[in-house]
């Protein structure tokens, strides 16, 4: 988990379709409890699968869960990209 380069610090909302990131520890307080419970944990791998036609909500796969969340929530969850 800690092997990747700390190159890009961005949020889930800034992922491209198909791109993968890892949820950063520092945004723990910004993740709603419900999302945590659904597997959206710090350190977890998150992949953007699809963006809804009107750019919102977004469809992600995190920790094996396939979820749709709104971009306003996604923009508050910081991630680290591995590239």
């Amino acid at each position: 988990m800690r092997d990747f380069l700390y190159q890009n610090l961005s949020t889930i909302a800034s992922l491209q379709i198909g791109e993968i990131g890892y949820i950063s520890e520092e945004s723990l307080d910004n993740i709603p409890l419900k999302l945590l419970e659904m597997g959206c944990l710090p350190g977890a791998e998150v992949q953007l699968i699809q963006i809804a036609p009107l750019k919102d909500p977004i469809y992600i796969c995190v920790n094996g869960s396939h979820l749709a969340i709104r971009t306003e929530t996604a923009a508050q969850i910081k991630i680290l990209k591995s590239e």
Partner: peptide
């Protein structure tokens, strides 16, 4: 306050 999440089941 608005919060929205839905599972996309298989």
């Amino acid at each position: 306050k608005s919060f929205f999440v839905i599972e996309m089941p298989n």
